[in-house]
Design a binder for these strands. Structure first.
Length: 218
DNA sequence: CCATTAAGATACT
DNA sequence: AGTATCTTAATGG
């Protein structure tokens, strides 16, 4: 094993040693690529060929969907230990991405070649379980996102959005503009401003320029 | 100071 | 809930 592979191995072991057997950990270190990204990097885009599967080691990634007119919608976040469901579904065929993935913070992740996916599915039951489990979690997240979209009004969606944001950033002070929120929720700036003003009056948040303080009462 | 841009307000669809 | 438009406030040169 090279020095780089050893680094990958120890990183992997830290986070996944209770999930994968040592031989599998070693295989992953040998065939995957360790990558580091700064915040706001697009690591996957619409129509892009999927050749690797991402496995998040640290940080979080936003997964978006886009309509014909270029309106974006935030679907969910990928966090430590997560992998991308959309990648899983098309691991056997060579297919193109239906989503866009942008780093929310600094991110370390492993890129695993899709050929290895199948190989390990057969060889390691721990891998098989991990993939199936991930698939289930993603499906649940997607259903939650659909429910939110279908049954919640904009005010509820905004509250959920802020909660999620606080959770992934581990910070109650959000560095974000009303316009960015509107983009993520596929709404307009004025509408978000109106709702945010109401939340402020209700004592749930405090606002400064470019910053939203989500208070305990939230 | 001024230019830029975020956010508030109002009115209309 | 969304669009258009205007006003106000913060930021950074």
């Amino acid at each position: 094993m090279s020095q780089e592979d050893l680094n990958t191995y120890s990183l992997l072991k830290e986070r996944f040693e209770f999930l994968f057997e040592p031989e599998l950990l070693k295989e992953i270190s040998l065939s995957s690529k360790l990558m580091h990204f700064e915040a706001d990097n697009t690591i996957m885009d619409f129509g892009q060929m999927i050749t690797h599967m991402p496995l998040v080691l640290s940080g979080s990634i936003r997964v978006m969907r886009e309509d014909d007119e270029g309106h974006e919608l935030l679907l969910y976040y990928l966090e430590v230990g997560d992998t991308c469901a959309v990648t899983l579904t098309c691991c056997s065929r060579k297919s193109k991405s239906k989503i866009r993935a942008i780093t929310e913070s600094q991110v370390d992740l492993l890129f695993i070649p899709v050929e290895k996916m199948e190989e390990w599915m057969v060889a390691y039951s721990s891998w098989r379980n991990f993939v199936l489990e991930s698939y289930n979690i993603r499906l649940d997240e997607l259903l939650t996102a659909i429910d939110n979209l279908a049954f919640n009004n904009m005010n509820q969606r905004l509250i959920l959005y802020l909660k999620e944001k606080v959770w992934v950033t581990k910070n109650a002070a959000l560095r974000i503009t009303h316009q960015q929120i509107a983009n993520d929720l596929n709404s307009s700036r004025v509408v978000i401003s109106r709702l945010m003003k109401k939340l402020e009056h209700q004592g749930l948040v405090k606002q400064r320029r470019n910053e939203i303080q989500v208070l305990n009462a939230f």
